[in-house]
């Protein structure tokens, strides 16, 4: 197996409180708690989780918009923080970011030309003719008419604005794109257009994607591998087909069972009012235990490690009592879930 493009080890980000996060007398909110994750070159890794699980914080750490409190990120063997301190642009040339809200990520008082020219000029040093040519290429790449380049952002629809956001991210010729909910703000018909575009660009430009979304079905269509996050931790990761065939963590099952499919079977709702734990007073042990129907005493003792669920080691789940049965929407109506 080749070395991963991105190697994340023990990544932690604490907000508020002290930097020394393990001291109990300095409580802070741990948005990310010791994440280990590898991203292979050329793959699309999906990251799924609900609001507040830390997926956006993870994205901001990766592109250098935020600095980890602890842990390391290595990009193709180089330490990300060192890379950042050596050259302000080194990181931006390799990893780029696509924002969730396409319109608010474009300066309302700048023309598209200025928005796209900035990364070309500052990251790649292009000027004059070369810059113009590249601008034309970028617009063509994301299927936008060349005359759009002298317009202002408010003249575009959400889908078009997101294409511009993607073009800007691609302008610096990055190898890795971190896409933070790139289609969540778009209508379904436009969403499919943008997903198609992303798929095509990945093939044409040999990109690696880290695709973050709360929408399982979107992540499923685009990802080779999926990592599920809950409360700042990765609780399960597996190749896409395996995750959907046999999700091991009860939380993954809850997610799958709650997603409505057009014409699909009835969704399963959790009983009671299941909510995220209080980040200022996290529960001991597994953070999902208070919501989990399978939780036992040992779940509340210590945080379960990310264990292998398959012999080849590419399916891991952080659960002491993982579910072994395969998942199928219609058959999941085991007594504990079919209520009401």
């Amino acid at each position: 197996m080749s070395a991963p493009l991105l190697e994340i080890r023990g990544l932690t980000r604490t907000f508020g409180g002290g930097r020394r996060w393990f001291r109990p007398n300095q409580p802070g909110v741990q948005a990310i708690q010791g994440i280990d994750l590898d991203v292979m070159r050329g793959e699309t890794l999906g990251i799924v989780g609900e609001s507040g699980c830390g997926k956006s914080t993870l994205a901001r750490l990766l592109v250098g918009l935020d600095t980890p409190s602890n842990g390391t990120i290595h990009y193709a063997g180089d330490d990300l923080q060192q890379l950042r301190s050596q050259d302000r642009h080194a990181l931006a040339r390799r990893i780029q970011y696509v924002f969730q809200d396409p319109l608010s990520s474009l300066n309302p008082r700048k023309r598209i030309r200025d928005i796209l020219a900035a990364p070309l000029y500052y990251l790649r040093g292009l000027e004059g003719q070369a810059l113009e040519r590249r601008l034309g290429e970028l617009m063509e790449m994301v299927n936008l008419r060349p005359e759009f380049i002298s317009r202002y952002p408010h003249e575009f629809s959400g889908g078009q604005a997101q294409r511009i956001g993607i073009a800007r991210a691609l302008a610096g010729d990055p190898e890795l794109l971190v896409l933070d909910e790139p289609v969540s703000a778009l209508d379904v018909s436009i969403q499919a257009q943008v997903l198609q575009l992303l798929r095509r660009l990945k093939d044409e430009l040999d990109l690696t994607y880290l695709f973050i979304s709360h929408d399982l079905s979107v992540v499923e269509t685009i990802s080779d591998r999926i990592a599920v996050m809950y409360f700042g931790r990765i609780i399960e990761q597996a190749p896409t087909y395996r995750l959907f065939r046999s999700p091991s963590h009860p939380y993954t099952r809850v997610l799958l069972d709650s997603a409505p499919i057009p014409g699909g079977p009835p969704i399963q709702a959790e009983a009671g009012t299941a909510e995220l734990p209080d980040p200022l007073a996290p529960p001991p042990g597994c953070a999902f235990a208070p919501r989990c129907s399978r939780a036992q005493e040992d779940c509340r003792q210590a945080v379960p490690p990310l264990d292998n669920m398959s012999p080849d080691g590419d399916h891991r789940a952080a659960c002491i009592h993982p579910i072994k049965e395969t998942w199928q929407r219609i058959v999941t109506q085991s007594p504990r879930e079919s209520r009401g």
């Binding site: 018909s189 929408d215 269509t221 959907f244 057009p262 929407r329």
Partner: peptide, 22 residues
């Protein structure tokens, strides 16, 4: 076409079909 462009959970190979234009 609107139904066809919704990604369907559990069918990773079913690529949603976009509606061109606006």
């Amino acid at each position: 076409r609107l139904i066809d462009c919704v990604p369907r959970l559990g069918e990773p190979d079913n690529e949603p079909d976009a509606i061109p234009g606006l």
